[in-house]
């Protein structure tokens, strides 16, 4: 019983983190057909900038409460600055190129971002634990959990809901769906595709940075954290179905629970539980759980 509850909470907590870290990736892929390896770089940038800003702010001795504003603020700053520079400065010259080539482009950007973060913040770890501690703990069956973890689950739900609402219930969102459906036709209909691409990339980047920024208070921010996220996020969106927000949710829950179950019941399997789940899901549903049937080109 105790273990079952612990698996439930740990699984949800990990799933929330996975969703926040991978939803930007699936959004960008869905709209732009770019499998963005640099996403890991944005995650790292978000984590670094938020940990750095929290550290500076805490030195002033003010209330911790405002750090909860600081975290999303830094994510937005990173998303706007890095997202715009990379989209306008590099990616827009590459649109229409082969998907595989775009992976390589984003990998190159990732390498550059990795060293850029090192140049800006050095190689020493940054810790900014205050926001994670400030909300305190609650005990469930005698096991303490941080409230911050539950707040992250809430944030993940909120992000998912806002994205769903934005895509399906607003005019802009519906236009975006048209762009996803057929780029050329929507362009011919007078939709400003370029603008949609820029906006999507910035939003995707911001979401990636947000994933890092909210994680920063729980971890020690060190060089290399970006690389760890990429494969995990890829696994999540492939399981769910590439380019689908709902898929990212399902994928995150699958992977989150797979990991929690293995940690509690059979720890040695933790290392490859994610890949086992991915292989199993793909073996049954070759295009992920939430993929749409695709027309066959003859």
């Amino acid at each position: 019983m105790l273990t079952a509850v612990a698996i439930l909470i740990d699984g949800l907590g990990f799933a929330a983190w996975l969703f926040l870290s991978s939803v930007g990736l699936t959004l960008i892929y869905g709209v732009m057909r770019i499998l963005n390896i640099a996403h890991g770089g944005f995650y790292a940038l978000g984590a670094y900038s938020s940990a750095w800003a929290i550290g500076l702010y805490m030195q002033t001795g003010s209330s911790v409460a405002f750090t909860y504003l600081l975290i999303p603020l830094m994510a937005i700053v990173v998303g706007l600055v890095a997202g715009l520079i990379i989209e306008r400065g590099i990616l827009r010259f590459m649109y229409g190129r082969d998907e595989v080539l775009m992976v390589l482009v984003t990998y190159a950007i990732f390498l550059i971002l990795e060293d850029a973060t090192k140049l800006i913040w050095g190689t020493e770890s940054l810790v900014a634990y205050q926001p994670a501690y400030y909300l305190g703990n609650i005990e469930i069956f005698g096991i303490p959990y941080t409230v911050y973890k539950f707040a992250l689950i809430g944030l993940a739900v909120l992000c998912g809901a806002v994205l769903w609402w934005g895509l399906n219930r607003t005019t802009t969102g519906k236009l975006l769906l048209v762009v996803i459906e057929d780029r050329e036709v929507s362009s011919a209909l007078g939709i400003n595709v370029t603008l949609f691409f820029s906006a999507t990339f910035v939003i995707g980047t911001t979401l990636g940075a947000l994933g890092g920024a909210v994680t920063a208070p729980q971890i020690s921010v060190v060089p290399g954290i970006g690389a760890e996220v990429i494969v995990m996020a890829f696994a999540v969106i492939v399981i769910g179905g590439m380019g689908s927000i709902g898929g990212a949710i399902i994928g995150a829950i699958f992977v989150g629970f797979a990991r929690a179950v293995s940690v509690h019941l059979y720890p040695p399997a933790e290392l490859f539980s994610i890949y086992l789940v991915m292989a199993a899901v793909l073996a049954i549903k070759p295009y992920g759980l939430f993929s749409l049937a695709q027309g066959r080109k003859i």
């Binding site: 490859f272 086992l276 292989a279």
Partner: peptide, 13 residues
């Protein structure tokens, strides 16, 4: 991409 990710999964196992 599914071929890519499945081959990746096998190698990581």
């Amino acid at each position: 991409i599914f071929f890519a990710m499945l081959s990746l999964a096998l190698s990581m196992i």
